[in-house]
Design a protein around this nucleic acid. Structure first.
Lengths: 217, 217
DNA sequence: GGGGGATACGTACACCGTACGTCCGTGCTC
DNA sequence: GAGCACGGACGTACGGTGTACGTATCCCCC
């Protein structure tokens, strides 16, 4: 009974599966091998080392983004759709998101979203330099938001404020925090994401109109 | 010759020092102990485990933020100053920034910036819910930006595009990326940060004016 | 003096990534 | 068909990791 042959793809898939089930800390070459019913060192026939494997995980997740934005739609709608597509994949692989965001990949997988976004921004009338600036701004916001959603970002996170509150935070030292504990303690991630996204898009649109015909990129 | 007694503070300081010198991967309990000229297990008299130690690192860095914003200044100026203070500390401890941003601390160290920011936003006239929303938006942008600056964020990062370009990216597949390689390849971090920050502040100010007297928080 | 608590330390265990050597099934060459 | 080269699967081994546990040492208070 020849088992399915070992493959880089199968290994990466097993890694993603393991990460989503037990978290990134659970990932070890031994563990993945066991998961695949295979000797540890067999993995190294398909993957040079653990770091490369994790890069593979990030690339795989990134490449699964589904861009469904209509090329004929208004550019603001396209930006919205692209940002949401990014967010959606992060939601689908929440525990892998940290990996995606924290690894420097220089492969085509990571380049496609950039290409799409740049095309959209240029179609909005932004010059080269401005398009890149805008892209970087959107990415910064999206990455930061996803980190919060995924539950990585620090104190400012949602449910932990409840913990803090339970611990009893001193209202004299932190009047605002304690009086706003109600709002800090809850977080509709999607609503929060969209709120900032809309603000950014509105601001970007204002810039686009403002600089029309003044493209200096 | 009784050496300086071991202390949680000294341990955390040694960890920060080590991280900044050799990166977060170099941190191990053995390494830190060696750095302090001390047995490994002695550390555990002052720190429950490695994770707590890293939390200590994050808290320490966070608590060194110097808020110099004038309480009487316009709220937009105060937001600007606070965001820059955050960025400055990240620049001072670049390799520790990832830790700061990726750990869930629930200590006072992480609460102070939140308190300051909330106070500022409330003074701008935002209701409770809106103030928290704005705070989250600013934090998302700042965190995302710092990750990029620190050189952690993926493909969209600056100098690696040059590498990609050197590798020869296919202009047919990625026309925008390749035609904008010039702009993607360089990044004045401070200018980029300020660009987005100003956009956000402007947008926030518009919201503040728009909702005046309509506070529903 | 003597007892007790805090601190420093060494040893030991389970686990990690991976370099290296070995084995075996497959396919090509004669 | 015989011989052989080769690639993939595997076991072993080494140096590293975090930390549980037991022990030794110091200082302070009685």
């Amino acid at each position: 009974m020849p088992t399915e042959p070992l493959t880089r793809g199968r290994i990466v898939a097993a890694a993603i599966d393991l990460i989503e089930r037990e978290g990134a800390d659970a990932v070890s070459m031994r563990r993945i091998a066991a998961e695949l019913g295979v000797g540890v060192m067999s993995l190294y026939n398909h993957v040079p080392n653990k770091d490369a494997l994790l890069n593979g995980v990030a690339e795989s997740v990134l490449s699964q983004i589904e861009f469904t934005d209509d090329p004929d739609a208004h550019w603001t709608d396209r930006v919205r759709m692209q940002a949401r597509a990014f967010r959606q994949i992060a939601h689908h692989y929440p525990r892998s998101t940290m990996l995606v965001v924290s690894r420097q990949l220089h492969s085509a997988a990571g380049l496609l979203p950039v290409e799409r976004a740049l095309a959209t921004l240029r179609s909005a009338g932004f010059g080269g330099a401005d398009a890149v600036r805008m892209l970087r701004m959107f990415i910064a916001y999206i990455v930061g938001s996803l980190l919060r959603e995924v539950g990585v970002t620090p104190t400012f996170a949602p449910d932990h404020t409840r913990t803090i509150n339970a611990d009893g935070i001193d209202p004299a030292l932190f009047p605002e925090v304690s009086s706003l504990a109600e709002f800090l303690g809850e977080c509709d991630h999607e609503a929060e994401f969209d709120f900032g996204l809309e603000l950014l898009i509105t601001a970007a649109e204002a810039q686009a109109g403002h600089r029309e015909g003044t493209n200096r990129g």
